[in-house]
Design a protein around this nucleic acid. Structure first.
Lengths: 339, 339
DNA sequence: TTTCCATTGACATACGAATATCATTGGCTC
DNA sequence: GAGCCAATGATATTCGTATGTCAATGGAAA
């Protein structure tokens, strides 16, 4: 028996220490009804004494089931993706599934590498965020026989399953709402849309709604900055926008943190919200409701997206087949005082 | 060869499809210098064609190395633990290590279950947050031969390695600072200390500093609420504290989010900060610096704790032994206008 | 022609859990 | 005493990758 490392204690060690055969110990653990209660008790005592923990690696090789779920998120810190990941974890944990987590930094190549690793590790299912993937990732996932969930957006073409909400429609609705409020000079602030279908769809939703309302859209209408979206980004941007010859009377941020940054800047600099400029965000982080001027935002359910994604893959893994492959968790325009 | 599932494509399939022996294919992948270049090219073409991805489960059984690191965090959403986990991930990813993530919800039992699973999955190292563990967890980690890091706090008795900062000293220093500013009625607001060594040490630091300064500490001085600490918790508490017959003139929050909530409430209700009440937090989330009244707080480096923890275990796994087992990343009193 | 070396292959085995199949043993019932 | 059944054991093998060791082959150099 290996000394001092519980990872190295094997069924063989239990067999020797208990004076019973290997097959009996295995039976006691896997088919207890075939082993006498006294024998089982003796085995359990031995297991407790020598600290045997089954090697799940070896088991998964035989059973063809790893009980691991791979999850890729673009970022974790200061974002709803943390809520999402926590939601996933809370569904997996009681079912004894282990989450493999990878952070892609919005890089499709890193996502690809993560997916390849999940496959190599025999993950039973894979959850990715969004629809922007490399061609290789698509191929890998296309040949992956387990459930695949693309989360955080909805599109017609889905690799397997999708859990999210319509980013395009959400942006259309918010833009329409702002137009309906009579704002003349609406500016949209978004993250880089390249490799980010969510940002792409939100941007397109904004543009389409503006054009449908006869509004012009030019370089001054859409302001773009790099991911990730930060508070500081919003703080830095606002003075520039307000210093324009023709400043905006409404700003629609396609992410929540920069909107918070903008709100802070306005509060700190005596800019009346929504009197001088209205501000709308996207995500409804907790802070939005408790700002001195509660902020209008698109409310989405990051945690629920995680939970639903995990529930969907678990159902699929348990053999349930008559479930919808697409789950629209919707969004909600949370209208507050900032607009 | 298995149809349609890239997880099922084996070395044997490559051998057959290339007309070369199993051992040659294996050699080409593992000891390329022993295989002719033309042969290697042929093998690589075959691998690309049939989509072979090595089964890391089987490999780890043989190699006795899983290249997986288990990480337990108490929560992910809206907390610096997300920064921490991201920091861990960023150090592991370039080294091709896979993070196994578990969320314990501040439950030592859940932490125990996670640790047991990491051991069963042959994780090469384990990173836990804090020093509060069940006795069983201590035993499991005591018999685990890989590196173990207890992160987010520092204490004299360490199971293996520790990466964090002195929560006790940080609270002492901030309390002393507030006392030195002349605040008469300082109230501390903290999360439940049970099973949470960080909260425990912060609370003890506050109490000790108060008593050392001849200040009384009673039920009105220390306000406790359940984990996790939320914005809404701070918003709900402030009116109660300010409605006291003898309201506090300074409030020291032992976590950052409730402090933000308190700041929002004061801003919304015309309470002058720090004129009527000073507010200090613990964590220095980004928002603290950009509030209309920038907030004083204990600055800690969540992400760096993650990175350092991961770097430490990687160094240990790579055989480096002459490295400190304890890394004090320190803290910093970030004094701003709220006090 | 002989020797040496690079390359490939055959064979056996390891890692640890799981299990199919047949055999053995003891106790109980008829 | 025979038959049956519960319980345990022996044997062989699987899962997929890795590797030690020896054998075989072809090509090049001396």
């Amino acid at each position: 028996m290996a000394q001092g490392d519980n990872r190295k204690v094997t069924l063989k060690d239990v067999s020797k220490a208990s004076g019973l055969s290997l097959i009996t110990v295995s039976r006691a653990l896997r088919q207890p009804e075939t082993v006498h209660a006294d024998t089982r008790a003796k085995i359990q005592r031995t297991i407790d004494e020598i600290g045997y923990i089954p090697n799940l690696t070896a088991r998964s090789l035989v059973s063809q089931r790893s009980d691991m779920i791979g999850v890729v998120v673009p970022i974790l810190a200061s974002s709803l993706f943390a809520d999402f990941a926590q939601g996933v974890s809370h569904v997996l944990e009681p079912r004894k599934q282990q989450m493999l987590l990878a952070v892609s930094d919005w890089s499709p190549q890193k996502e690809e590498e993560a997916v390849r690793t999940f496959i190599a590790r025999q993950a039973d299912a894979i959850i990715v965020t969004g629809f922007s993937h490399t061609e290789t990732t698509r191929k890998l996932l296309g040949k992956f026989a387990g459930p695949v969930v693309e989360a955080w957006n909805l599109r017609d073409r889905v690799m397997d399953c999708a859990v999210g909400f319509d980013n395009y429609a959400a942006a259309v609705d918010m833009t329409r709402y702002l137009i309906g409020r009579g704002y003349d000079n609406i500016v949209m602030v978004g993250g880089a849309a390249a490799h980010n279908d969510q940002a792409e769809d939100r941007t397109r939703g904004f543009i389409d709604a503006m054009r449908a309302a006869g509004r012009s859209v030019d370089a001054d209408t859409i302001v773009e900055f790099d991911n990730p979206a930060t508070l500081e980004g919003g703080v830095a941007l606002l003075p520039k926008l307000m210093a324009r010859k023709n400043p905006p009377d409404a700003i629609f941020f396609l992410a929540e943190l920069p909107a918070h940054g903008a709100m802070m800047w306005c509060l700190s600099n005596g800019i009346d919200v929504p009197g001088e400029v209205a501000i709308a965000g996207f995500g409804d982080l907790s802070l939005s409701a408790i700002l001195p001027v509660p902020m209008t935002t698109v409310q989405i359910k990051g945690r629920a997206i995680g939970e639903t994604s995990a529930e969907l893959v678990m159902a699929r893994l348990e053999g349930v087949t008559d479930i919808p492959r697409t789950h629209d968790l919707g969004y909600h325009l949370q209208i507050r005082e900032s607009t």
